[in-house]
């Protein structure tokens, strides 16, 4: 038992690496916050755009909107089918070769934001099309424009429907910040891993796992609550 404690909960090693883990927690937090803000807002913009592109148009214009709509769907499907780690590594090495110098932090942020935007677009879109056709027609017939209908009538209902699946997906993708370790982002896992290599003791890894639990366990529990609170009507 003493050996177990010495190996996994070595107070001396833990005290030594605690400051690193704490700074890692800060990096994880702001990286996650940036990913959530950009991912969710880009997803909403894309869903609204897809809704606008799906409106009936006269012939020559409809070819253009049709092509745009298909490329939007292609983007969403691409981002949903390629692993985030592949995108992070591709951006980290590939973008500097194109003259866009992006650090590990930027590559992780960009990749996770794009992936989240694709998933969010699908969820918002599912919410948008689930609001009955009659709502559109009724709102438009009262004289509201397309944009007014969308903002005042459709989106409030769609977003409410989207909240539970969106919460779960956002939590899952936010945990992907740990993938930044691969491209040297100094978040929790990176700090814990280097602590392990320097001290040759797994206590920093234990500490890192506890740090993740401290950050994400409350979010998972809130997510559980949101899921029952805003449950999908069936």
């Amino acid at each position: 038992m003493d050996r177990f404690l010495f190996t996994f909960f070595n107070a001396e090693v833990m005290a030594e690496y605690l400051p690193n883990i704490l700074s890692g927690m800060w990096v994880t937090t702001y990286l996650a916050a940036f990913v959530i803000v950009t991912g969710l807002s880009l997803g909403l913009v894309l869903a609204v755009l897809r809704s606008a592109l799906s409106q009936k148009m006269p012939a020559p214009l409809s070819w253009l909107t049709g092509a745009l709509r298909l490329s939007l769907i292609f983007y969403v499907d691409l981002m949903r089918s390629v692993p985030p780690l592949v995108l992070i590594v591709l951006f980290y090495y590939g973008l500097p070769a194109l003259g866009l110098d992006i650090a590990g932090l930027g590559a992780t942020w960009l990749a996770l934001s794009l992936v989240l935007s694709a998933f969010a677009e699908e969820i918002y879109w599912a919410g948008l099309i689930s609001v009955a056709r009659g709502q559109w027609e009724a709102a438009r017939s009262t004289g509201l424009s397309f944009l007014q209908t969308l903002i005042y009538v459709i989106l409030p209902q769609a977003v409410r429907l989207a909240i539970p699946p969106l919460t779960n997906r956002t939590i899952a993708i936010t945990k992907g910040t740990a993938l930044g370790q691969v491209v040297a982002v100094q978040e929790i896992l990176y700090q814990a891993y280097s602590g392990l290599s320097f001290s040759y003791n797994p206590s920093p890894l234990t500490l890192g796992a506890l740090a993740y639990l401290a950050l994400f366990l409350p979010i998972v529990i809130v997510g559980r609550w949101i899921e029952t609170r805003f449950a999908w009507r069936r």
């Binding site: 996994f8 992907g176 929790i188 993740y212 639990l213």
Partner: peptide, 23 residues
């Protein structure tokens, strides 16, 4: 369920791979 949903999979993998040798 909540603990293993809160831990990023990569953290879990690194932990599971690196810790047993110490035991």
């Amino acid at each position: 369920v909540d603990v293993f949903r809160a831990l990023p999979p990569l953290v879990l993998l690194v932990f599971v791979y690196n810790v047993p040798p110490f035991a």
